[in-house]
Amino acid sequence: MSPTSTEPAPLHVLGALALELRGDARVDRDRLEQAQAGELADLIAADLARFAPRAADLELVLVGAHYDPVELLRPGWPLHRELDGLAARAPGRARGRVVAFGASNGQLPGDLTPSPDFAGGPLRLLPFVLGGDAAEVAAVGERFETELLETGMAGAATALAAQALFGLEVEHARYLTVHDLAAMTSLQYEHAGLAPLWPVLETALLQPEAEAWLDTPPEPLVRYAGGEARIALFSPQAWQRRYAAGLDCSSDDCRQRAFRQHQHFQARQRQLAAVLQAHGVPVNFVHCDAGEDCRAALA
Rank of each mutant, 00 (worst) to 15 (best):
S5C: 02
S5L: 06
H12D: 07
A16R: 06
A18C: 09
L19M: 13
E20Q: 12
E20A: 09
D24M: 01
R26T: 07
D28A: 15
R29Y: 01
L40Y: 05
D42S: 10
I44E: 11
R50C: 04
A52Y: 03
R54T: 06
V63P: 02
D68S: 15
D68C: 11
E71D: 10
L73F: 01
R74Q: 15
W77A: 15
L79G: 07
E82S: 09
L83F: 00
R89S: 06
P91Q: 06
G92A: 12
R93T: 03
R93E: 13
A94E: 15
R95C: 01
V98C: 05
V99D: 10
A100L: 01
N105S: 13
N105G: 14
L108T: 06
P109D: 03
G110Y: 08
G110M: 05
G110L: 04
P114L: 01
S115Q: 06
P116H: 02
G120T: 01
L123F: 08
L123K: 13
R124K: 10
L125F: 02
L126I: 13
P127M: 08
P127W: 02
G131R: 15
D133V: 10
A134H: 13
A134K: 04
A135K: 12
V137T: 05
G141I: 02
R143N: 10
F144C: 07
E145A: 11
T146L: 13
T151N: 11
T151L: 12
M153N: 11
M153G: 04
M153K: 04
A157L: 10
F166Y: 15
L168V: 00
L168Y: 14
A173D: 03
D180Y: 06
A182Y: 06
A182Q: 11
M184Q: 14
S186I: 00
S186E: 15
L187H: 10
L194V: 04
A195E: 13
W198D: 07
P199C: 09
V200P: 08
T216Q: 15
E219D: 15
G227L: 08
A229P: 03
R230Q: 15
I231Y: 04
Q237A: 15
W239L: 05
W239F: 15
R241I: 00
A244D: 09
A245G: 11
G246F: 02
R255V: 12
Q256T: 07
Q256K: 14
R257T: 12
F259G: 03
Q261N: 09
H264K: 09
H264G: 00
F265P: 05
F265G: 00
R268M: 07
Q271Y: 00
L272Y: 15
A273H: 04
Q277W: 00
Q277L: 05
G280H: 08
F285N: 10
H287C: 00
C288E: 11
D289W: 04
A290C: 00
C294G: 08
R295N: 07
A299T: 14
